[in-house]
């Protein structure tokens, strides 16, 4: 598999490290608040529950053998076709901007 890093161009997958689902958001929980069921469920899902989609999947990879950028790669899990690669930081900043 070759992944087109948005900084370095297409490289063999051995230069990259896979993390997983890029659609998960880290739950925000008030500090010191007592843990309720909803909080527990949200964290449980965030840490342990993963979909196994057949088809397009947005996932986090890091170009560890290259520029070290974290990337959001949209990959078809059936064919490995890669539909897009974005810098994770840009995606994260855009996500922050919408939340504010």
């Amino acid at each position: 598999m070759r992944i087109p890093c948005c900084y370095c161009g297409a490289r063999g997958h051995e230069e990259f490290t896979y993390l997983g689902d890029a659609t998960l958001a880290r739950p925000s929980t008030e500090i010191g608040a007592p843990a309720d069921d909803a909080t527990a469920a949200a964290w449980h899902d965030y840490v342990y529950v993963r979909d196994n989609p057949s088809g397009r999947h947005r996932e986090l990879w890091q170009h560890t053998g290259g520029c070290r950028a974290w990337l959001v790669v949209t990959r078809d899990t059936r064919t490995h076709e890669i539909h897009g690669v974005e810098a994770a930081r840009d995606v994260a900043l855009a996500r922050e901007a919408t939340h504010e």
Partner: peptide
């Protein structure tokens, strides 16, 4: 290596602020 990756993940993905 793992900790460096972990820090970069935190900085680029979890806490870009």
């Amino acid at each position: 290596a793992k900790v460096l990756q972990h820090m970069e993940h935190a900085l680029q993905w979890l806490r870009p602020d």
